[in-house]
Write a protein that binds this DNA or RNA. Structure first.
Lengths: 340, 340
DNA sequence: TCCTGGCACTCGACTGTAGCGAGTGCCAGT
DNA sequence: ACTGGCACTCGCTACAGTCGAGTGCCAGGA
């Protein structure tokens, strides 16, 4: 029942070969390409055990072995050594990220970088509003009854929203409103604003109250309810590498999943403190992604986390390399955010 | 040389059947399914002529005929009647677009709507900055040496950009700067701002000049140079309909093209006044899209145009339907923008 | 002149057969 | 506990044969 060291070595060899060649691997090829120190027959016996335990399987009777999701899991947990980034990769990361002028810019560059380095689909979540604090609120008159509300968060996010006021609103009132909301809300985390917004309405002078009431509704929608999480995506063309063998022949379900923001958020948005998550095939909760693996992690300045990022690829992926890249990129982006 | 009416009818029948069935269509099937009033043999003679003229071709010797790009072109130009939208479609458009609170919201809803109605890939360009005017400029202090510049355009677009000032900048100066840039720039089209921005620097008082110089650089970058055109995309999963027969087997080039903003802009951004463009297969300048067709048009409030939108699909697409939908959606969106 | 029915022909799609070879499982021997 | 040997499985490829949709051409008729 327990797998001895050699069986584990065999499993590792199978995973590595299969990832590299994309073809079922047989006992003979295995002993030729790895120094296992035993004969093919012995390897075959080990393979039989591994298969019985569900770590590998045979596509057809007379074919070599292929890792199962469970096999990849074991590989990731116990058999893969960290693959250090190549200097070239390190340089690429730095080159790509310096010179970003903007949060938008940072996110776009990051997602393209990730896609390029891992040669897979990359997903980056903008810093979550729920984890941001209000830095400044601005009210800009658009017409007599319309204001543009602009919220700037400490994470660099900027959200805007049109506010339709109940009646014409004088310039002085706009200034008052702006002063009030800024005094009350600047510096607080968005998730903690609702009671404060309510207080704003209660404390408003009678002549400002209707305006403040309308404004507060929009504030709540913008800051909290709408949960305006944004997401950037890149590298979908990478799904077509490996010519339809990956993803059991159809890109359809994958592409469909990638179009749903909700799904993407679920993929990379659920971030526990500084952990890196690997979800392999069946482990994905989303049915459409049962043929894919996702490597994701949180990022943020210092040790705090403001959002998630990750990549999606075939279960047959280079886990050590991908994990190293995702981790490194997340750290670089965090450092970049810390500088602001 | 000239094609008589019957030959044109045959071509139309071939296009319609092929679009519907996705299979090469033969002379016998054709007379069965359309009231052509002649025998298969006659149709064959017509087909031979059509083939000689390059409007249709045979995949293999013993197969039916398939329209060529040139055939589709003739069909679109002369043979397709406008297909009125179904009431259901009309309702879908209205239902989808009412209740949009935001420019972002409008664009996102529009692109999803287009993708859903046409069952193809939809692309919508945000209102182009080059075609917008400045409505308001806002400067928000972020730290002692940093400002956030927020530009609100009359089309609803909001752009922000971090400005790194040469030195610490007092609150009063920020107010002065804000007043100056607004006085000078509000109401002008973005494409016409460069000389005005230059004038701002020249006219600034000596103590404000360094700050204004820095600000002007960023202004120019944001307003003009960076040509920050934004684009929304939806429905990529629709590329997988028609099971790899379309797009000659590989989605790769298409997906690659769709990742390049520049390419997308070229597709839908070059808008002539109120025309609808259909580019079929080879007619596309972008090599990667030689197997696809693009239907695009401009949109905007009233008869002005602020941006483009369109869909991309296989050359074998329902042109009349797609054209009707694209046109209708563009008009609805224009009306929506006009209300603001 | 134009259309039609008939006919021979082409060629892709499908089916069935056969041989090859990678890979396996099992067993007896060390 | 490992190894060499051996029979067996079965997918892959090649090849031959059949079928049928579809064509081009031609001679006859309106």
């Amino acid at each position: 029942m327990g797998l001895d060291d050699r069986k584990l070595a065999v499993l590792r060899a199978i995973v590595e070969d299969y990832v590299a060649t994309q073809e079922p691997v047989g006992s003979k090829a295995l002993v030729e390409r790895h120094q296992l120190g035993v004969s093919p027959a012995t390897v075959r016996n080990d393979m039989a055990v591994l298969e019985e335990e569900g770590y590998i399987r045979q596509p057809h009777t007379s074919a070599g072995r292929v890792p199962t999701d469970r096999g990849y899991r074991l590989f990731v947990d116990r058999l893969s050594r960290v693959k250090p980034l190549s200097p070239a990769e390190r340089r690429a990361i730095e080159r790509f990220l310096v010179g970003a002028v903007d949060l938008d810019d940072v996110v776009h560059r990051t997602v393209r970088l990730l896609a390029q380095l891992t040669r897979q689909v990359a997903v980056v979540q903008y810093p979550s509003l729920a984890r941001s604090s209000v830095r400044h609120l601005e009210l800009v008159p658009i017409s007599t009854t319309r204001l543009m509300l602009v919220m700037i968060a400490d994470t660099g996010r900027v959200e805007q929203r049109l506010v339709e006021m109940p009646g014409p609103i004088p310039a002085d009132d706009v200034l008052d409103l702006r002063r009030l909301v800024n005094e009350k809300l600047v510096g607080t985390r968005l998730s903690e604003t609702p009671p404060l917004v309510q207080a704003l309405v209660d404390e408003a002078t009678p002549d400002l109250r209707p305006a403040m009431a309308t404004l507060s509704t929009v504030l709540l929608e913008t800051l909290v309810e709408r949960h305006e999480e944004r997401i950037a995506l890149a590298g979908t063309a990478n799904l077509t590498r490996g010519g339809l063998l990956d993803f059991q022949g159809s890109l359809r379900p994958i592409l469909e999943a990638l179009e749903e923001e909700v799904v993407l958020l679920k993929l990379i948005g659920e971030v526990e403190p500084s952990t890196l998550r690997v979800r392999i095939g069946d482990e994905n909760e989303i049915d459409n992604l049962r043929a894919a693996s996702v490597v994701s992690t949180g990022y943020g300045p210092g040790s705090t986390i403001v959002g998630g990022l990750g990549v999606l690829g075939p279960t047959r992926m280079d886990y050590p390399g991908t994990i190293a890249t995702v981790r490194a990129v997340a750290r670089y982006v965090g450092d970049l955010l810390a500088q602001n």
